[in-house]
């Protein structure tokens, strides 16, 4: 049974019982890896029961850079097991699907997050695992950042979703709104672009599962309240104001973020 998320008013933090195996696909650079890492941390904190463990699988076969294996130290600290290609984060570029991935299908005490590579090319990995996923409790979610050029319109998001679903060979479950410009306070950006993502949700028939924010959740709550006050005519916008929020920490960048613009 795929997840049914809700928010815990008034702080809007993500609640619910997710599928045992959650996959994140998306356009190139949509933030799949960052969402995967933070979703795995959320599982470890809020969902994991005694006797269970959380496993994050880095299945990005598209790009050797900025991948969830970069967050190895944080994941270890959170007690999350990382399954990644042996050459991830080295000078060798041989992205391959690690054999250890099959353990997540066989071992029912594992809560798994699968971080899939970008675009339809990356989503083909899902197709290759389709037989193993038959009958499993899985949810295939698409991560959308409306500030990325290919997904900055509802129609663009719809095209992306269609291409990903075709390549994965599986029905998508829902949309994660990861609106951001890689800045700490993404709340205004999230609010500005909610209508685009909400419309894409209507066009694709995929529910909007949750949104992400970096840092200060309370600003977002205030912004949602202001939005709710003016969104009474628009059911889509009003629904969006009830969106659960996954508060994230940036984990995938150079260790000391040396390039931060001052």
């Amino acid at each position: 049974m795929p997840q049914n998320f809700f928010c815990n008013l008034p702080d809007r933090s993500l609640q619910g019982k997710p599928a045992r195996i959650t996959l994140f696909v998306g356009a190139y650079g949509s933030g799949k890896s960052e969402v995967s890492v933070n979703f795995a941390i959320w599982l470890a904190h809020h969902v994991k029961q005694p006797g269970q463990k959380v496993v994050l699988c880095d299945l990005d076969t598209i790009n050797p850079y900025y991948r969830s294996a970069d967050a190895r130290a944080i994941l270890t600290r959170e007690g999350i097991e990382l399954i990644a290609p042996i050459y991830a984060n080295t000078n060798i570029e041989v992205p391959a699907v690690p054999a250890a991935i099959f353990s997540v299908f066989d071992n029912e005490s594992i809560l798994a997050v699968l971080d899939i590579g970008g675009e339809d090319l990356g989503a083909r990995v899902v197709g290759s695992l389709r037989d193993r996923m038959a009958g499993q409790d899985i949810a295939l979610n698409v991560v959308v950042n409306p500030y990325r050029p290919a997904t900055d319109t509802p129609e663009g998001i719809q095209m992306t979703v269609d291409a990903l679903a075709a390549a994965a060979g599986l029905q998508l479950h829902g949309i994660v709104d990861n609106a951001n410009l890689l800045e700490l306070d993404n709340q205004p950006h999230l609010i500005d672009t909610l209508p685009i993502v909400a419309r894409a949700s209507q066009l694709t028939g995929l529910p909007l599962l949750f949104a992400t924010t970096l840092g200060r959740n309370e600003l977002l709550i205030q912004a949602f309240e202001r939005l709710a006050a003016v969104a009474k005519e628009s059911p889509a916008a009003l629904a969006a104001t009830k969106l659960p929020i996954l508060t994230m920490t940036r984990s995938i960048h150079y260790p000391t973020d040396p390039f931060a613009l001052v």
Binding site: G29, Y147, P149, D152, N180, L181, D192, T193
Partner: peptide, 8 residues
Amino acid sequence: MSNRVLMK
């Protein structure tokens, strides 16, 4: 919406 986009 901001005139900026997020690009590589």
